[in-house]
Design a protein around this nucleic acid. Sequence first.
DNA 1: CCACTCACTAATGTCAACAATTTCGTCGTC
DNA 2: GACGACGAAATTGTTGACATTAGTGAGTGG
Lengths: 216, 216
Amino acid sequence: MPEDSKLAVTEALRAAILAGEYVPNQRLVEVDLCERFGTSRFILRTALQDLAAQGLVEFQHNRGARVREVSLAEAIEITEVRILLEGMLAARAAERVTKSDIAMLRGLVREMRAAMAKSELLTYSDLNARLHAAIRDIAAHETASRLLRQLRDQTVRHQFSLALVPGRPAVSLPQHEAIVAAITGREPAEAQRAMHTHLQSVIEAFRALTVATMPR
Amino acid sequence: MPEDSKLAVTEALRAAILAGEYVPNQRLVEVDLCERFGTSRFILRTALQDLAAQGLVEFQHNRGARVREVSLAEAIEITEVRILLEGMLAARAAERVTKSDIAMLRGLVREMRAAMAKSELLTYSDLNARLHAAIRDIAAHETASRLLRQLRDQTVRHQFSLALVPGRPAVSLPQHEAIVAAITGREPAEAQRAMHTHLQSVIEAFRALTVATMPR
DNA sequence: CCACTCACTAATGTCAACAATTTCGTCGTC
DNA sequence: GACGACGAAATTGTTGACATTAGTGAGTGG
C-alpha cells in the first residue's frame, strides 16, 4: 500500500491524538510511531509535518515532535472564531436546507433528546458533533468548513471535558433545538443568532472551567 | 546556516510565489528551486509541504508540486470569511486602541490619500495591506490573525488585479476612512459595520471582475 | 499521413545510512 | 550527600543514492 499510505498514516495518527491516546506535551518518538503504524520514518515524518501545520503537534528543533498543548485561553479564542464561522454556516444552511435535510436534522435532535434522557453523555457528545457537521454540509461553504475542522480538532480535548460536565446537556439541548428550528423554518437571521447564543454559552462554560480548575 | 534554514527557505519561496514569480499551475521543480535558494531537496521539500498545508501550493502524486490556482469563486468564499474575521478584529481594535495606535492609523490614512491623489496604485495597495495589518495587531487575536494571513496569501493574486482597477481607490478610500474613524472613535459596533461594508464591496468588485473577464 | 509502441529522459517518491544533537546515567570531586 | 563534568545511548536532522513513475520523441506498421 505505498499508494496513499501517507494520508492513511496521517489520519490514523490524527485519530489517535484526538482520541487522547497521546496527551498534550507528550513526545512523539518517530521510531515508536513507525512501529505502531507499520510505516517508515520518512512517511511518518511527512504525516507529523502535516499535523504540525494544522496545529495538532509542534516541533522543537532537535527535540522532535510533541502533541501541542492548547490552553483554555486559546480554546476560548478559537471558539470566538467558531462563533463567527458557524453562525454564518447556520444562516446559509437555513437558506439552502432541503426536505430531506430537515428530516435528518429533526432525527438528530430526537436522538439527542433520547441520549440526554438516558444520561448517555458520550452518545450526546457524538450527536452534538454530528449535528454541527450536518449544518456544515448543508451550508456547503468549503473554506469555512475546512477552517472549522482545524479549529475543532484543536479544541477536541476541551470539548470533551465540557461534555462531561453534569448539567451540560440540559443547557445545550434547548439551544440545539432552537438552531434546528430556525434552520428548518428557513430563518437565516434567527439561525445565526441561535448559533451565536449556543457557542457563547460554550465560551462561558470554558470560563467556568477556568476558575474551577485554576485554584487547585 | 543549517539552523533555521527551513524557515528561511519557506519564507523565500512564499515571497516568490506571492510576488508572482511563479504563476498558478506552474510546476515547481525541486532541483531548480534547490539551486535558486541554495538548499537541499530535503529542506526544500519540507518547505513545499508547509506551503501546501497553507494552500499556496498543491501536490499531485508522482507529479510533484504546483502553484495552486485559486478560482475567483473561491476568492469570494475566502473574502466572505474575511468579512467575519476582520469585522470582529475591527470591533476589538476599537475597544483596545491606544493613543499611539490612533496616531499611526491616522498617519496611514493620510498616506493613502496622498497615494491616491498621485495615482500611485502600488503604493496605495501596499498601504491598504499595512492598514489591515495594523488593525490585526491592535486587536491582538492570535487565532484570527493566523487564519487571516493564510486566507490573504491565497487571494493575493486577485487582490492585486483588483488594485489595478482604475476607479478602485476612489471607492475604497472613504471606506478605509470610515473604518479608521470608528476605531479611533472607540465605536466597536460601527467599526465592525464599516469593515463589513468595505469587504462586501471587495466581493462585489470580484463579481464585476468575473463578468468582465469571462466573456472573452 | 496517422496512430501506436517502446524505449529514453527527467522528475519525483522512498529508503537506508550518516551526522549532529539531546538526554540520561555514571563517576568523581568537593 | 550533592553537584557538576563526562560519556554512552537514544533520537532527531540531513544527505545521497535508488526505485518508480509521468512525460517525450523517435520509429514502425497500418
